[in-house]
Design a protein around this nucleic acid. Structure first.
Lengths: 192, 192
DNA sequence: AGAATGATGTCAGGGACTGACATCACCAGC
DNA sequence: GCTGGTGATGTCAGTCCCTGACATCATTCT
């Protein structure tokens, strides 16, 4: 493990976000990002698969939180409990490791560009699949797990959108629990 | 309206599907597609915004069917009735204008490549938004319409996946109605 | 016939991304 | 302390996607 100035990945991410915010995604060039980070364009592509990916680097962390919470839950945890645990763990990642202001800025960049919205949809779909797989690993039927996976991500997405809304001050975890409760209300008759 | 050999768009789509099926999406070049269609690479990009879009050209047609069915439904149609009408109209487009075998081949190409899966997610999200907008235009509350829009697309996606499964012989419209009924069961307690 | 229109061809070029190879900083072993 | 190994970076050449500008051609309208 040897390198010149440590943290090239971090510098690239920071540089990219700054430039995207200033000039927009399409107007900024990878060479420009690399230049601001003090590396070569080629190095950028060794750290990130493509130009969009630099904005979605923390994704594995979020996914790991979701999956880990499901895997580590007590054996007798209900489905609602599993989803709640996963959402709590994921929400904590966003709230603590990222922060609301950062998430707001990042989200502004993403929603301003269709290529980035596209990539975000892919990431959410992968998150949904990961949650589904984690549920299946606990012995839950594929169909049920798949539905729960999509549902969990839907709640996450909705709560996140509210969390970064201009005047919102509530906790992300609270918003997630509220959303989950609303869904639970809708499906309670079936669950019981 | 003047042109050389008519139907350049169709020829490009056909050529693209053939080449994607033979060599894969990444291995085939836009110049190759254009060459097989008897046009220039530049002409390809005048018909399709990018290399992926050639596979999603019929999308507006599907979206129009969904939206039109919702807009044209009688004033007193229930939400379930609106979704059923939209799904029927959309399903007919796929079944009649496209056909099951074509859909199978096209779907095989898409699922084999991440860039194409990504684009498909974007198209489905847009379809969902279009449905939501059509419902809002009928005076339905934004929140309800949004939920229904996502739900409708979810049912569509699920039924479509079953429709193109290897041994499936049932009608797409039947599969959609079945899926809608299953969702209806899940939410009946709330609706009443 | 001649003008208007719209689709296509041609050309030049930027920017994303990749493979191959050289180079440099650091670490381990002698 | 020197030397070789390792991993990250730089350099270079090249392919492919995609775009703007301009010329050209077939069809349609007058």
């Amino acid at each position: 493990m040897a390198r010149w100035a440590p943290g090239a990945s971090d510098r690239l991410q920071r540089a990219a976000i700054e430039l995207f915010a200033e000039d927009g995604f399409e107007a900024t060039t990878v060479a420009g990002i690399a230049g601001r980070a003090g590396v070569t364009e080629r190095t950028f592509f060794r750290h990130f698969a493509d130009k969009r990916e630099v904005l979605f680097a923390g994704g594995e962390q979020l996914e790991a939180a979701f999956v880990g919470a499901i895997a580590d839950a007590p054996a007798d945890t209900s489905m609602a409990g599993l989803l709640a645990a996963a959402l709590d763990a994921g929400g904590r990642v966003l709230q603590d490791a990222r922060g609301r202001e950062f998430s707001r800025m990042r989200n502004g960049i993403i929603t301003a560009n269709e290529q980035l919205r596209e990539r975000e949809l892919l990431k959410l779909a992968k998150l949904s699949h990961a949650v589904t797989a984690a549920l299946v690993a606990r012995g839950i039927a594929q169909v049920t797990a798949s539905l729960a996976g999509e549902l969990g991500v839907l709640v996450f997405k909705t709560a996140f959108a509210r969390w970064i809304a201009p005047d919102e001050t509530r906790d992300l975890l609270d918003l997630q629990r509220e959303g989950l409760a609303a869904v639970s209300d809708l499906t309670r008759a079936e669950t019981v």
